[in-house]
Simulated assay, not measured.
Amino acid sequence: MECGMDGGQWMLDTYGIDITEFQSQAMIWMRSGNYASMIYYQMLKKDEYLAKFQKEMGGSIADDIEF
């Protein structure tokens, strides 16, 4: 969303899963007892995908705001 994209639609287009399936799988991982490593992995992937989407979209939705 930071780049002006619908993440749910991107997951559907890219991986063929909708947001409901994604959340279902996330709940399974949360209950797996591997939560701490999952959070670390999620943070790494968030940074990776944010950089990728910013490059593709030409920045983030707030880049043109000056205070």
Results as ranks from 00 to 15, higher is better:
10 W>M: 12
6 D>L: 01
63 D>M: 03
4 G>A: 06
39 I>M: 06
7 G>A: 02
19 I>F: 03
22 F>V: 09
65 I>R: 07
19 I>K: 12
24 S>Q: 10
65 I>W: 09
28 I>A: 07
16 G>M: 06
30 M>C: 07
47 D>L: 07
65 I>T: 07
18 D>E: 04
40 Y>K: 15
57 M>D: 02
64 D>E: 11
52 K>Y: 08
4 G>E: 04
44 L>C: 11
34 N>T: 14
1 M>G: 15
53 F>D: 04
57 M>I: 02
53 F>P: 00
54 Q>L: 03
67 F>T: 11
23 Q>V: 00
50 L>H: 10
49 Y>W: 13
15 Y>N: 09
33 G>R: 06
4 G>K: 06
63 D>V: 01
57 M>W: 02
29 W>Q: 14
43 M>N: 14
8 G>H: 03
67 F>L: 12
20 T>E: 10
10 W>Y: 12
10 W>T: 10
52 K>F: 11
3 C>Y: 05
7 G>N: 00
60 S>R: 05
27 M>T: 10
26 A>P: 01
62 A>M: 10
46 K>N: 12
49 Y>M: 13
20 T>W: 05
31 R>W: 05
52 K>V: 03
50 L>M: 12
5 M>A: 08
11 M>F: 08
64 D>P: 00
38 M>D: 01
23 Q>T: 05
40 Y>A: 15
5 M>Y: 09
46 K>T: 12
29 W>I: 15
3 C>F: 07
36 A>E: 13
17 I>W: 04
41 Y>T: 13
42 Q>H: 12
9 Q>P: 05
64 D>S: 11
34 N>H: 15
67 F>P: 11
39 I>R: 09
25 Q>K: 14
29 W>T: 13
44 L>S: 13
67 F>H: 09
45 K>N: 13
2 E>C: 05
23 Q>M: 08
15 Y>F: 15
60 S>E: 07
32 S>F: 07
49 Y>K: 06
5 M>F: 11
30 M>H: 07
58 G>I: 01
32 S>K: 05
19 I>W: 03
52 K>S: 06
48 E>P: 02
27 M>W: 08
46 K>A: 14
53 F>Q: 03
62 A>G: 06
24 S>T: 14
14 T>E: 02
61 I>T: 06
30 M>R: 09
49 Y>A: 01
34 N>K: 15
25 Q>I: 08
50 L>A: 11
59 G>W: 04
5 M>S: 06
49 Y>V: 10
32 S>T: 06
54 Q>V: 04
12 L>K: 09
15 Y>A: 08
26 A>I: 05
13 D>P: 01
42 Q>M: 14
66 E>M: 14
25 Q>R: 14
17 I>V: 13
18 D>Y: 03
41 Y>L: 15
61 I>G: 03
42 Q>C: 14
63 D>K: 00
27 M>P: 01
